[in-house]
Amino acid sequence: MLDEPGTGRPADYATGGLVHLNGNSLGPPRRTLAAELTRVVDEQWAHRQVRAWFQDGWLDLPRVVGDKLARLLGAAPGQVVIAGETTSTVLFNAMVAACRLRADRPVLLVEAESFPTDLYIAASVARLLDRELVVETRDGFDHHLAHRGEDVAVAVASPVDFRTGERRDIGETTALCHSVGAVSVWDLSHAAGVLPTDLDANGVDLAVGCGYKYLGGGPGAPAFLYVAERLQSTVDFPLTGWHGHADPFAMSGEFTAADGIDRARTGTPPLLSLVALDHALDPLLEAGIDALRARARELGELFVELVERDVPGAVLASPRDPDRRGGHVALRIAGADKVERALAERGVLVDARPPDLLRVAFAPLCTTRDDVRRAVAVLHDVIGGDADPASDAGRGVR
């Protein structure tokens, strides 16, 4: 469970004395992670070598960790797997498989505000499958589905805008997709671990996400894939590795898909990364997604209130209504990249996105109200109150 609201649990995380407000890019590790990795290496890998795949449950870990993560995502067991690949690869697999479910429809629809990788992958899939790629603004996305949705095979969206933090309602958009017969694919990378997604209740078809942001699985942590149970017997993935085979150790020359979510697996899983992700999930599950969301919302509100009061040089780029924001707040500040570097020199970690956005994220378990207050005080000092933050004459910016 979470401690008293506002106190956080920073002692459980290796923050290095820094204020980590960039958990939407990379969450800090638990202090006990090194010991857990050492245990696996010394007691399992070194001691049993290849036998550990069978004796220590390594082969089952992608599904075991997937079922743990499913509890945070609002999914029943057997629908989430850690596919053992990067987010880009898993997203490609999901998009192609979704298009194959609607082979008679020509359009692949994606939001213009999507993370760049989503746009790149969508363009590649459209070329590969000879589909028409339609890229629409946030409002245009909904309009296209409502008025031209009969041609849409797949609609790709995110519940959180990676720049501004603005939320998109998963249930409403998925229902709109289904009303016109389109398949929904969601990128949950900026939502998993900080927002309820309720995948089953919202009728989501497929979803992907990375393990290294709010989930805290570490640099390059493997991605996860959700496939609704109702689709698992018919979904056809383009990447068909031996771990997705019905009988992987038969070494058959022809691919026969495994039953259920295991068919989404590809090659040998990155075991140590899986262990790190598994280790990171435990305190998140102990707290529960509703408490995590409430904490992130509380911290975000405190940050916004203090910025509006104390930092007149910053303009809120996120929605002012906290219910319309995800786990991070974006500020519009000229020279945001310089401000980011100046904050880092003073022990406050945020990140900048061009042309002028400063993103500040609130990982619920390792951020306190005092962290937020310190960050705002340093931000005020860095941009010099009314001084122009883009100028090197702005106090503290260099």
Rank of each mutant, 00 (worst) to 15 (best):
Ala122Gly: 15
Ala123Arg: 11
Thr86Glu: 08
Val110Leu: 12
Ser124Asp: 12
His143Ala: 14
Ala123Lys: 07
Phe162Lys: 00
Gly140His: 07
Val154Tyr: 00
Gly165Tyr: 11
Thr164Lys: 02
Glu132Arg: 15
Val135Ile: 15
Ala103Met: 03
Ala155Glu: 05
Thr87Pro: 01
Val135Thr: 15
Asn93Leu: 04
Arg163Lys: 13
Gly149Asp: 09
Glu136His: 07
Thr87Met: 12
Thr117Ser: 09
Ala98Leu: 06
Ala153Trp: 00
Val90Phe: 13
Val96Met: 00
Val135Glu: 14
Ala97Lys: 02
Arg163Gln: 13
Asp118Pro: 00
Ala157Val: 10
Pro116Phe: 07
Pro106Ala: 05
Met95Asn: 03
Asp104Tyr: 07
Pro106Cys: 06
Ala153Arg: 01
Val96Asp: 06
Asp142Ser: 13
Gly84Leu: 06
Cys99Ser: 05
Glu132Cys: 03
Gly84Cys: 10
Glu132Leu: 12
Ala103Glu: 12
Leu128Phe: 07
Arg163Ile: 12
Arg148Ile: 07
Val134Pro: 05
His147Asp: 08
Thr87Ser: 14
Phe162Ala: 09
Glu113Cys: 11
Ala123Pro: 02
Val107Cys: 00
Gly84Met: 05
Ala153Gln: 00
Phe162Tyr: 15
Thr164Gln: 02
Ser158His: 07
Ala98Thr: 08
Arg138Trp: 08
Ala155Trp: 02
Glu150His: 14
Glu111Arg: 13
Val110Arg: 09
Thr164Cys: 06
Cys99Asp: 01
Asn93Met: 13
Phe92Asn: 04
